[in-house]
Structures are given as C-alpha cells and as structure tokens.
Design a protein around this nucleic acid. Structure first.
Lengths: 156, 156
DNA sequence: TATGAATATTTTATGTTTGAAGTAAATGCA
DNA sequence: TGCATTTACTTCAAACATAAAATATTCATA
C-alpha cells in the first residue's frame, strides 16, 4: 500500500521530467532549424561548420581536434571530416606541433576570421530575436537553472 | 548619445540570450548523447528510430509520413529512410489508404509495440534520472517557460 | 472534362554523425 | 631499454539529415 503510493509520487515526478525533456528537445530543434536555414540562405554555410568556426574564433591560439570534439560534443571522426572540408575552403589550417607528432593544432585563417565575424553578428541578432520573449533577467535565470545539467562528463 | 546607450542595453540583452541559447544547446546535447548511448547499448536501437516509434506509439491509429515529419521536425526525405529501415526490421508497416493513393499510413506492428514498450519504460527512468535535479514543480515551471518558444511555424 | 496548381511522398546529391576499427606516436614502467 | 598501454587522430561503413528535384495523385476551376 505504502509502496503503491510511493510509486505514484515518483511516477508523477518522472512524467513531469519527461515533459520537460520533450519540451527542451522541441525548443532546441525549432531554434536550430531556423538558424540552420538562415545560415544557409544568407551565408551558404552549414550549422556544423559555423559551430566549428565559432569554437575556433573563441580560441584564437587554435585547438586540438580532441578539444573541438569535446567542446562541441560530437565524435572525433566527425570533427575530422568537418575540418577537412573547412581546410579545402581555406577557412582553417592545420599546423604541426613540435613535441607531439600525433597532434595538430587547428586555427582559423584570416579568411576564416573575416567570414566568421560577418556571420557571428547576424547570428547573435537572430538568436536574440528568436529568444526575444525572454528578458535578459529571465535569460540569465534560465541559463543558471540549466547549468545544473552537467552530471560529470562520462569518461569514454 | 541616446542611441549609443540604447545600443548598449540591447547588446546586453542579446548577449544574455546568446548565453541562454548556448546553454540550451549544451544541455540538450548532453542528455541526447547519454540517451543515444544507453538506447544503443541496452536495446540496439538508434535515437531517431526510437523517436519515430514513440510518435507512432502515441498515435495507435497510425500517422502519415508528413505528420511524422512535422511532429519530429525532420525533413520528409529523412522520414522515408528511417521508416524504410523500420519496415525491414518488422517494427512498422505502411498500409495503403483508399481514397488517396498518394499517402500511406504508417503504423506499429505488434512487434513494434512490444519492443517500444520495453524501451519506453527504461527511457522514462533515464530521463528522470538525468533531470533529477529538477523537482516536479521546477520541471513544470521550466517547461512552461519554454512553451513560449513557438513563434508560429513558418510556412514553407 | 481538361488542365494547371497543390499535395504527398520518394529520389538524389551532398554533408553530417556515429561507433568501431585502424594507425601512429607518446608514455609508463618492469 | 623493451614493450604494453594510452593517447590523438583518421578511416570506414552504416545511418541520419537536409534541400532540391522528380514522381504521382488529387484538387480547383474554367
């Protein structure tokens, strides 16, 4: 009897969290789709490419492939392919690093910096527009709530 | 002068929203990665397949391809491929619909229902675990805040 | 009833994306 | 030093994903 009651309480909790998860997913996809669409139309760039450029812009000293993979939370094989294509387009370079011949540092080229800056300004405006219902205060509050979802990065 | 001040205020707002967006993306990816991993390990199923099964389970009368595409917010061509593979695996069937020969209704098979139910229970538990820092009340509150991100579905 | 527009889906080309296997280099340590 | 392990990255096969073009069917309406 007590157990049946307990079960119901935790059921309610898990249903509420499931609804939250579905809403999170839906909201994120909606915004992602819109940003992808605008980036393609206005700058002929894909979202994954933009994400990589943004990460590299943030770290002007360059990043290792593995750093990019961890930061963007995508597989390492995936990063290889995206960087390969960005190199072909001349937006990114790989430079050898003496001391460890396994690794190479990936960096934006001048062209990469220039093109990213053009996109970034528009991108920030779009995000602000798409999230315009959130006041700065609400936005900060929501960010803080979401901060908790970190549950120590699995080692794999 | 007034304009410079105005600019600064809106800058602060857009930065706060940008931070929110990055946090949303990060949180969602983190949970998605974890769910994908567990679904693969425990049930040998991919996340996109699980999503399709979940949508079809919700609508036991079946769904049109275009309904699935809209509901899951993925392209129609994408749905075709996923359904093709689910049909091969015997989890889903396409049935002709008299009256409109362009469309076919997609439905779970008995096997599809059975297998999905196994997964869904585990999935709900995982989500609840991964979002355990949110009380049911917080979860509902957060869901409600995110509800606003709907900005009327573009017509395209 | 023709026939042009709209609708529903599939096909195609390209580009991610993953997970696993493979390669090469660096590290730990007996 | 020798050699197993770890680390960093690439390659590979399969699946996923998009956008655009193609196909097939239905609808609207003149």
């Amino acid at each position: 009897m007590a157990q049946a009651a307990q079960k119901t309480v935790s059921d309610i909790a898990s249903k509420a969290r499931l609804r939250l998860w579905l809403r999170l997913l839906q909201s994120t996809r909606k915004i992602e789709t819109e940003l992808r669409d605008r980036l393609r139309r206005q700058f002929s760039v894909t979202l994954p490419r933009f994400d990589v450029l943004a990460a590299l812009y943030r770290k002007s000293d360059g990043m290792l492939m593995s750093e990019l993979s961890r930061y963007l939370m995508v597989s390492n094989g995936n990063v290889t392919g995206i960087i390969d294509r960005l190199v072909i387009d001349g937006l990114v370079v790989r430079t050898q690093r003496k001391g460890d011949r396994r690794t190479s540092i990936v960096r934006l080229t001048i062209k990469g910096v220039t093109e990213f800056q053009r996109m970034a300004e528009a991108h920030e405006g779009w995000v602000s527009e798409l999230l315009s219902e959130f006041s700065p205060k609400d936005a900060e509050g929501l960010s803080a709530m979401l901060d908790g979802i970190q549950f120590g990065g699995k080692s794999r």
